[in-house]
Design a binder for these strands. Structure first.
Length: 745
DNA sequence: GCTGACACTTAGGACGTCCACT
DNA sequence: AGTGGACGTCCTAAGTGTCAGC
């Protein structure tokens, strides 16, 4: 069963980001329908009792069975809490993590600090095993000592490096050495006390550029008359003007939200005069920005270079931090600039003003003993804290959803890499027990308790279809999207028989980012019957799994396996599918491009499973046509070349001289070359066609154990660069270093 | 048990850049 | 030299999951 995901091939074709036209009901309904309201649910269940003559599925036996379940569920279940209460974990020691005093560099070294080779852990038998984070407390002392020792020694190479720096003369040597001297954090011990770092120093965020007033010749008109706006109102107006070309400035919600927030920024005079968005004319502003971006494109090389250099300087200054003796790249060191919020899908808050973030909104996180980042002159940070139990360097609260935003490290950093590695190890643990779990949930389909049946069916979907968990969302706060646990009755259709298959479930809902999930899946009979049961007497907008949410599900999963949550199934199924597909699709005799096509196909199978879609590129049709033209031309060339060979052969027969022989050879070579070129083009066309609506990047980056790909490359002698670009190689450095050609996920 | 706050991963699109081809 | 198109980077929204406090 594992990895058998071929059934949902139909998914992508019909899917797309859904716009307003997609038939999803406005979710205006009262919260009473919401799952949380169990009272209501019970009422509904109870009312079902009286109604014994539903026509749909009337076998006596089934009725009885159903009643039994309902009774059970409605009454005693809730009181019978699990005996298997989770053991109380020993509380983490509160030590603030600064067990060893942070080492402060008076001046951050420009280079990575290298750990001495002697310190590196010997490769153990199973190199890929991940050292569990939690270790017994008794070990703590020993471990800390080891850590401290390591840190002490870590410092040494730094010194030698500095010496080296003095002798810049033989920089060649150094440059050559650089790649192999990359810090291999994966060969070192990991902190075990829950602390994420012991020393952290950074320069703080780069604030958004201040607003620049429009030149006076760029005018705004209200109701046909020119009007000079106050700076605050003008800035917000420019946000709208910059979007004039976008469809969403025509959307009601967008306009309404924008106008409401814009008015808040107006002076009282402006407010009283500007009362109707339709009467606002932003065209000159829009033109101005268009002209600006044209000008930017048309800049001289020199000017472009200047910008590049400036960006590089900013990156060098703010783009790195020092964490535990190593210089690490920061992922997003810029504060998000103000603008108009554009959520994805049918977002109720689209068009709202995303406020400018001031230093007073920003929390800085760094070591006590580090050089604290300075706020811009005349301002203060909201707070400077020293919390080494978290990984972020900077945070602020955004005004649209009230969510917290963070500045964190790059995926190539130790702190992200360890987490990533751990993720795949958890998924591999799942591999070891997935059959047991599958048997278990299949058993649970027959449970007497409704909640357990629901849990089991939901888990089946998560496993088989790689659905997301589906947390509850607050209504009206974001687009109406769902995952497995939050599926509603309206999101599935049941067909006892469809297209020659029995027990087909048709899914049609909006998932994350309002990407449509559409899939028709034959399921086991028991699942089908259960679904019928779950849907009985419910309204379309009622929850399918009214006795289930992600927290219940994850609690259950945690009991089945340490570290198991719903999303682990996605990781597991994605990775195992890649591994299987690679095995299946790669044939030894294929040449390099064909092998890479096979890899992409395996990758694609995963992307389809995970429903990773993208909008078809706007230029797709045209570029495809171009490619086809090329192919046709190549074919013509080829047939010409073949004809040449024939005549050369004939020539040779007649003349029988060296010259004709040579000529024939040349012609033959030409044919071979053309054939190869043609094949390359055809492979390219196939790949592109198959890929038009599918995004491979997401799964590659987030779901596929990189060691599988690395092993595949090593096994077939494929250069890793063909699979991973530079950024990806940096992110997966750990995997590239540790996986051998025989790695098994 | 429920809720909200919080931390962190996963996601697609916009846009810039580079490179092969003409 | 110009250009189409692939590729890479940046951006930030939208998920997942945990935990503390009631």
């Amino acid at each position: 069963m594992s990895g058998d995901h071929s059934h949902n091939n139909s998914q992508i074709d019909s899917g797309s980001r859904v716009n307003d036209s997609h038939k999803h009901k406005e979710k205006n309904k009262d919260k009473e329908h919401k799952h949380k309201d169990h009272k209501k649910d019970k009422e509904r269940e109870n009312s079902k009792y009286g109604n014994s003559d539903h026509k749909d599925f009337s076998e006596k036996h089934r009725e009885k069975e159903k009643e039994r379940i309902k009774h059970k569920d409605g009454s005693t279940d809730r009181h019978r809490e699990k005996d298997k209460r989770k053991e109380i974990k020993p509380k983490k020691e509160k030590e603030n993590g600064f067990s060893s005093p942070p080492r402060i560099k008076s001046e951050p070294d420009n280079d990575v600090y290298h750990s001495p080779k002697s310190l590196k852990r010997e490769r153990d038998h199973d190199e890929t095993e991940f050292k569990p984070k939690k270790i017994k407390l008794e070990n703590d002392k020993v471990d800390k000592k080891a850590k401290k020792r390591k840190q002490d020694e870590d410092i040494k190479p730094k010194k030698t490096q500095k010496n080296k720096k003095g002798e810049v003369a033989d920089g060649k040597k150094k440059a050559k050495k650089e790649p192999e001297e990359k810090w291999k954090w994966w060969e070192e011990e990991r902190a075990t006390d829950g602390s994420k770092w012991s020393f952290l120093e950074h320069k703080g965020p780069v604030m958004a550029a201040p607003y620049e007033l429009l030149p006076s010749n760029v005018r705004f008109f209200y109701d046909g008359k020119q009007m000079k706006l106050s700076p605050e109102a003008e800035e917000v107006a420019t946000f709208f003007a910059k979007m004039l070309d976008h469809e969403y400035t025509t959307k009601d919600t967008f306009r309404k939200n924008f106008f409401k927030d814009w008015r808040k920024e107006m002076t009282s005079e402006e407010k009283s005069r500007i009362t109707d968005l339709k009467k606002c004319n932003f065209n000159e502003m829009g033109e101005y920005f268009k002209a600006q971006s044209e000008a930017r494109k048309a800049m001289t090389k020199d000017d472009k270079l200047k910008i590049k250099v400036e960006n590089e300087r900013l990156l060098q200054e703010y783009g790195f931090c020092i964490m535990d003796n190593h210089k690490e790249r920061i992922a997003n060191f810029r504060i998000e600039p103000p603008g108009l919020f554009r959520g994805r899908g049918d977002h109720p808050k689209m068009g709202m003003l995303k406020r400018r973030i001031r230093p007073e909104d920003i929390i800085i996180n760094c070591s006590k003993g580090s050089k604290h980042p300075k706020p811009p002159p005349g301002t203060k940070w909201k707070e400077v804290r020293h919390d080494n139990k978290v990984t972020w360097l900077v945070s602020w609260t955004e005004n649209i959803q009230g969510a917290i935003k963070y500045i964190m490290l790059n995926p190539s950093s130790r702190i992200k890499g360890e987490k990533d590695w751990q993720k795949y190890e958890t998924a591999r643990n799942l591999k070891k027990c997935v059959e047991r779990l599958r048997n278990q949930y299949r058993e649970d389909w027959k449970s007497k308790e409704m909640r357990i049946r629901q849990r089991a069916v939901a888990l089946y979907f998560i496993d088989k279809l790689a659905l997301r968990a589906g947390n509850e969302k607050e209504e009206g706060e974001s687009a109406d999207t769902v995952g497995c646990c939050s599926l509603r009755v309206e999101h599935i259709n049941l067909y006892p028989e469809k297209d020659g298959q029995d027990f087909v479930v048709e899914f049609d809902f909006l998932g994350k980012d309002s990407i449509r999930y559409y899939n028709k899946v034959p399921v086991e009979k028991r699942v089908f019957k259960n679904l019928q049961l779950f849907m009985e007497n419910k309204q379309p907008e009622d929850d399918l799994f009214d006795r289930l949410n992600t927290s219940i599900l994850n609690k259950h999963l945690q009991e089945l396996m340490d570290g198991l949550t719903a999303k682990v199934f996605r990781t597991y199924n994605a990775s195992i599918t890649l591994q299987q597909q690679l095995k299946e699709l790669t044939s030894p005799e294929e040449n390099l491009p064909a092998k890479i096509l096979s890899y992409n196909r395996a990758n694609r199978a995963v992307a389809i499973l995970c429903n990773h879609q993208r909008a078809q590129p706007k230029t797709f049709e045209k570029s495809m046509q171009n490619l086809q033209t090329k192919i046709d031309a190549k074919k013509d060339q080829l047939s010409d070349a073949k004809r040449d060979v024939k005549s050369a052969k004939a020539d040779l027969k007649v003349r029988r001289d060296e010259k004709s022989k040579k000529a024939l050879e040349t012609k033959k070579k030409a044919v071979e070359r053309l054939e190869e070129q043609l094949m390359k083009l055809e492979v390219q066309a196939t790949d592109r066609e198959e890929n038009k609506q599918i995004a491979l990047g997401t799964s590659k980056l987030n779901y596929l154990d990189p060691r599988i790909s690395v092993a595949w490359c090593k096994k077939w002698g494929i250069p890793i660069e063909k699979i991973y670009n530079k950024t990806q190689r940096e992110k997966f450095a750990w995997a590239i270093d540790m996986a051998d050609d025989d790695y098994e996920f």
